[in-house]
Design a protein around this nucleic acid. Structure first.
Lengths: 214, 214
DNA sequence: CACTTTTGTGACTTAAAAGTCACTTATGTC
DNA sequence: GACATAAGTGACTTTTAAGTCACAAAAGTG
């Protein structure tokens, strides 16, 4: 047994933490430059190490890209979980789920969603990620249907509504900067309020989020 | 003077038509694979010619990418023009402008919008395209302000509203397929109706577009 | 047809980034 | 301190796609 018992992070943990850091940084670069435009030299430089060092933590660029996608889908899944747990109507579940998702993506430690370029993943990896994405989208669609059923959402096409919301949300990663005037929380609240109002059966006659009133 | 007077397309026209075809095809590939992931061999193959042939019509891949962006911004500009001309309130102008824009992008001959990857354009070209984009966004924002002023739109943050709408619209290029069940027109109408309802001061109590009622 | 101009090609060179490896530096253990 | 193991590096090879070029095929013109 090493000194300090298990009070100090052991090797495994440090290793895993470094791998996570690589994934986070890579996700940002992939997202800004596209998966083919991003270079591992670039990721390495942002982390202050050499490219060769990265290869101790990831097998290949493909592997890294795959890990980023997995992370993003994990965030998506947890966000819907939370929406389903905490919301009372279909609409509320969507609002909570989507704003959680958005906050996680653009927040300090977030892995921004990755634009799915055709071709960036292949074979089993592509199939797995697409499977997760389809599942996520199916759950979102069901929440829309639930909302229509319970009267919180207007009769409309669930698939189209889901795509509209996802577009509004994913696009944020293209323009949002943490250095700007708005916090991730403010953006998430205000954007989701506005976007979901389009579906609401009883839309309020004013918007409550802080960004709208400043 | 050649025979048939000017009834036959002359060389210049044919040349220009071929260049347009290259731009359209390239735009699709850039959009699906990202600007770095797209290869000119691929574009050439889709057009049934060799890569070397492309270089008779474009100077470089950069030049081609730039032309695609210019084309997309031209479409954007014309769409706002039409909205401003035909709409009566700020909200109506936005609805007309945005649905025109979306139809043009995903329609048969459309040049899908290009995700602006950082780094894909550089120097003067990047500055020019960003200038056009900023101008487009500024006009959209002004229409939101106009709508707030004339009472057709709720008091809200114009910049955020614009980003929400643009996200919903641009995202369509990621999932829409002309081979699917929905026509470009149907999608444009239904999506814009839903998305702009979120901003409307007097949102209707049901959605009219065909997709929602089928 | 004979000649010129335009359009297009396959085989090449070049550039950039992925991926590897023999080696150095750091860390932890007795 | 001495040894063992892990972490990290610079210089290399390999791969892929951009871009070029000498030549071939096609089209226009007298």
């Amino acid at each position: 047994m090493s000194r300090w018992a298990s009070a100090l992070p052991d090797r495994e943990e440090v290793l895993e933490a470094k791998r996570k850091a690589i994934i986070r940084e890579a996700a940002k670069v992939f997202n800004r430059r596209g998966s083919h435009g991003a270079t591992l030299d670039d990721v390495a430089e942002r982390l202050g190490v050499s490219k060769a060092a990265l290869y101790r933590y990831v097998q290949s660029k493909q592997d890294l890209l795959y890990a980023c996608h997995e992370e993003a889908m994990e965030i998506a899944r947890e966000s819907v979980d939370r929406g389903e747990r905490e919301g009372r109507t279909g609409l509320e579940k969507i609002q909570i789920g989507m704003s959680t998702y958005l906050r996680e993506m653009i927040g300090a430690m977030g892995v921004p969603v990755l634009i799915l370029e055709e071709n960036s993943l292949t074979g089993d990896q592509a199939r797995h990620i697409m499977g997760l994405r389809d599942e996520f989208e199916k759950r979102m669609r069901r929440l829309v249907e639930e909302g229509i059923g319970d009267g919180s959402i207007l009769p409309l096409n669930p698939k189209l509504a889901m795509f509209m919301l996802l577009g509004a949300v994913h696009w944020v990663t293209k323009w949002y900067s943490p250095d700007g005037a708005w916090s991730a929380d403010e953006v998430a609240d205000a954007l989701i309020e506005m976007a979901t109002r389009g579906l609401a059966a009883q839309p309020g006659d004013r918007l409550m989020a802080t960004i709208h009133n400043s």
